[in-house]
Design a protein around this nucleic acid. Sequence first.
DNA 1: CAATAAAATGTGATCGATCCACTTCTGATC
DNA 2: GATCAGAAGTGGATCGATCACATTTTATTG
Lengths: 331, 331
Amino acid sequence: MEPKKPATIHQVARLAGVSHTTVSRYLADADSLKPKTRVKVEFAVKTLDYRPNLVARSMRTRRTNRLAIVLASGPHFPGRLLAAASETAHKAGYQVEVVSVEGGPRARSARIEDLARSGQVEGILAISPTGLKSKRLRQVPIVESETYDDKLRGLGELADASEVVEIVEYLASLGHRSFFHVAGDQDFASARNRKAVYLEAIERLGLRSVGVYDGDWTAQSGFDAITSLAGDCGVTAVVAANDVVAMGVVRGALSRGWSVPGDLSVFGWDDEVMGEFATPSLSTVAVDREAQGRDAILRLLAEIRGEPAPEPAARTINRLIFRESTAPPPA
Amino acid sequence: MEPKKPATIHQVARLAGVSHTTVSRYLADADSLKPKTRVKVEFAVKTLDYRPNLVARSMRTRRTNRLAIVLASGPHFPGRLLAAASETAHKAGYQVEVVSVEGGPRARSARIEDLARSGQVEGILAISPTGLKSKRLRQVPIVESETYDDKLRGLGELADASEVVEIVEYLASLGHRSFFHVAGDQDFASARNRKAVYLEAIERLGLRSVGVYDGDWTAQSGFDAITSLAGDCGVTAVVAANDVVAMGVVRGALSRGWSVPGDLSVFGWDDEVMGEFATPSLSTVAVDREAQGRDAILRLLAEIRGEPAPEPAARTINRLIFRESTAPPPA
DNA sequence: CAATAAAATGTGATCGATCCACTTCTGATC
DNA sequence: GATCAGAAGTGGATCGATCACATTTTATTG
């Protein structure tokens, strides 16, 4: 085992019998070299196991090749999205710094601002509300994964909640007339949108909403929501903010003696594995988190390069999945 | 909006009327300055909103202040652990690069090796099996979160599975005699350990195991495991690798007409929220993932500094939680 | 108050790459 | 063989910090 220091560009140049500039050129664009020189340099690079010192490079070029992904610590950790985002970034030659931020919106936007100022990252992807108005701070572009997609598609703010309409329509087609919505944390655009679309759909279809419960994405909030309802409110269908909440709703319903889906239908969101195997299995919306992560990063990279926003490669299709937790209302 | 370039140490020095070295000293240890100079420098730093260029610093000091956390893409994303780890690292002045690796053990260890050689990170935390023998590569310490804890405590390899004994004992105390284990992916030490401890406990307590199913941490594997059993095998208690698997086991049992816990008791692991609200709610093992993440990083930092391994601050206590999915066996 | 040690500050080299402005070499073309 | 373009070399500046060492200022002491 040899602790020997990594080779520098000069050592490579010496071994190859060329100047360090040529090696630098080789690094930038190997094809610009004469074949004979290229072979020499290649050989030297291999022999010395040379790897350019990225720190030195960054110093000179003022490019760090690093992105930051900011996420809020909270009940749902966006693992799939994060993994896909990080992989996409790596493929594009970027490294990914993950920053998990505790605390409220204030702390979050302060941390993001700090990150932008640090000069350490070329772009920031926020998987959580940022509380920032501008999408660029000190030259550093910021993409908020939650909201960009809709604006991009030109579908307006509410696009990502459009499935709520399908859910309500589906439930109505089963015969449901009295609905209830357990919303997610209203700091999140997605939660606000779903709530708005829910109300709008109910209104438009001439249905009845017994109310909206402002939850926080937790199962407990789902449980509390359903158990707080009056016994005679007549609700037969619940649109939950996500599967975890839906699970709480189901449990709460059972605890008051309501069967699911016999007395109450429950619709979730996210297609979580445990929801699929739960009893009753949850009707839900399958979301392509990987595509979201990929697209968010691609969008950020475009932003960095000053290119126009790319069309999402795989247009995210949120598919409704119908399972045991939804059925016609009781007669 | 001014795109103006960030201030350098020289500009600060000039404004403060001192040399750049003095400013550098101020950065390193403000107290080593004469109060009067310190005030001058302080003022200049504030006025120019100066932030040291970390790239330049790294270049000179040859320290990057960066750690890498490697995780395998797979069915369970270690979100809580990752968040806690990343936060702990930040508090210690380190930045965290998250690398999510696709592919098998081979690809994984290759990627880790690459990372170590890159000189970009000072240490690596692997939240997944590495397939590496040495715990140090090219001077870069590597901590495998999965296994270090046990060795550290001097409790042997199997410590993290010790709760399996408690589970089996508890189930036995309820009257169970015929057990079944659905194991996790055997690439993981934790899965191997739980399996080994399960077998050992069954043996020692004079109980009967109708078999072990080598699963892969997924709900489907739990479902398959239980539905693949012979109808007359007589099993009454299942120890599942984790809650997701347990969920699959429960569902599979119901699908064959076995009630849980009436005919079959099922024990999970991880205390996932959805398991708490499922019907039946899952008996499980509450694991302090945050503490694991923290401890792993602290251990890595000690390794980097060449200090002895720290005693885990909050000794991880894995607490058994008894819920509806376990009960005495049928009479 | 001069001598001297200690503390504070300044000077210039250094890390390893890229970039720049030239000059020199090579080989194809007319 | 003169011309010319592209490839390669030369030598050094540059990025913005830290650090080893030299020098100045301050405090201490007889």
